[in-house]
C-alpha cells in the first residue's frame, strides 16, 4: 500500500521517513554504488531539504518497502541543478504539469521473488502506479524520471515503457543515468495495474498509517521497558534494590494497564 508524505504531514510520519532514508542508503550506496552522501546510515541530499513529496510503499506490517521523491520542474530539481551531464548542458524542461521523480527504489531484502503481493515485481509496479495516480490527481500530465539502465528495463518489463528520453545516457561515476518521460494517463496506469494485478485503492488513509505506527512505537516501548525491569530484578544485589525493582515493575505494569483501558 502507498502513503504520500510531504512537508504538511511529515510530523506524523517521522519513523516512516527515517526508514525511507535508511532504505535509500542501502539501495543507492550499498547495492548500486552511487556516489551519494550517507550520514548515520541515512541517505539524504539537498533536495530533501526542498520539501519534496515522497511516495512510499508499505507492507502489511507498515514496514517501508519502497519510495520515490517528487519535485516540481518549475522550481529547483535534480535535472536543473545536478544532472547537467544527462542534459548535455541544455536547460531542463520546465512546466507546471511535469513533475520530476528521483530516488525510486524498492527493498529487495524484504521482498520476495515471483509476482505475489510481497514480491519485488508487485511492489515496483504499485510504487509506479502510486506516483502516477498521485500526480494525476494533482493535475500533472507527465513525469520526467531520472533512472539507471536497470530501472529502464524494469519499467519496460512492467508494461510501463517510457514514451521517450530527454538528453542522453550519462556516466555518473560507476553508473549510468538517463532521464525518461512517462505520462500519467489512465491508459498507462491501467496497463501497469493489469500487469501486476493491482486492484482497487492503493492509497492508505493517512490516519490509519499514523495510528498503526503509534501502536508499533508503543509496543516497542513496552518491550524495552519489560527488558529493563527484568534486568533491574536480575541485577539487584541487596534486599532494598530488589524491593525497589519490584515496586517499579508494579508501577509500570499499572501504567500500561491504565493506558490500554483508556485506549479501548
Amino acid at each position: 500500500m502507498i502513503v504520500v508524505v510531504d512537508a504538511i504531514n511529515k510530523d506524523k510520519f517521522t519513523h516512516i521517513l527515517d526508514d525511507m532514508y535508511k532504505l535509500r542508503a542501502r539501495v543507492f550506496q550499498d547495492r548500486m554504488g552511487w556516489d551519494v552522501k550517507v550520514t548515520n546510515g541515512r541517505e539524504m541530499d539537498e533536495f530533501d531539504e526542498l520539501d519534496p513529496a515522497y511516495v512510499i510503499s508499505l507492507d502489511d506490517d507498515m514496514n517501508v518497502i519502497g519510495c520515490a521523491r517528487l519535485l516540481q520542474t518549475t522550481g529547483p530539481h535534480m535535472l536543473s541543478d545536478v544532472f547537467f551531464d544527462i542534459l548535455d548542458g541544455e536547460p531542463p524542461l520546465r512546466s507546471a504539469l511535469i513533475w520530476e521523480s528521483t530516488r525510486f527504489c524498492v527493498d529487495r531484502d524484504r521482498l520476495g521473488k515471483g509476482v505475489a503481493k510481497n514480491s519485488v515485481s508487485y511492489a515496483t509496479a504499485e510504487l509506479m502506479v502510486g506516483i502516477m495516480e498521485y500526480a494525476r490527481e494533482s493535475g500533472i500530465s507527465d513525469i520526467i524520471t531520472v533512472i539507471d539502465p536497470v530501472m529502464d528495463r524494469v519499467m519496460k518489463r512492467s508494461d510501463n515503457a517510457p514514451y521517450d528520453y530527454v538528453g542522453k545516457t550519462a556516466d555518473m561515476g560507476k553508473v549510468k543515468a538517463l532521464a525518461a518521460l512517462v505520462d500519467c494517463t489512465d491508459e498507462r496506469i491501467n496497463k501497469v495495474r493489469a500487469f501486476a494485478g493491482i486492484e482497487g485503492e492503493i492509497f492508505l488513509p493517512e490516519k490509519a498509517v499514523a495510528e498503526a505506527h503509534q501502536d508499533k512505537d508503543l509496543a516497542m516501548m513496552e518491550t524495552e521497558l519489560k527488558t529493563y525491569i527484568e534486568e533491574q530484578l536480575t541485577a539487584a544485589t541487596t534486599e532494598r534494590e530488589r524491593s525497589d525493582a519490584i515496586a517499579l515493575k508494579e508501577a509500570i505494569g499499572e501504567m500500561l494497564r491504565t493506558r490500554r483501558m483508556s485506549d479501548a
Partner: peptide
C-alpha cells in the same frame, strides 16, 4: 504558510 510546503495543490 502551510500550502507553500507542498508540491501538489493543497
Amino acid at each position: 504558510h502551510t500550502a507553500a510546503r507542498s508540491i501538489a495543490p493543497v
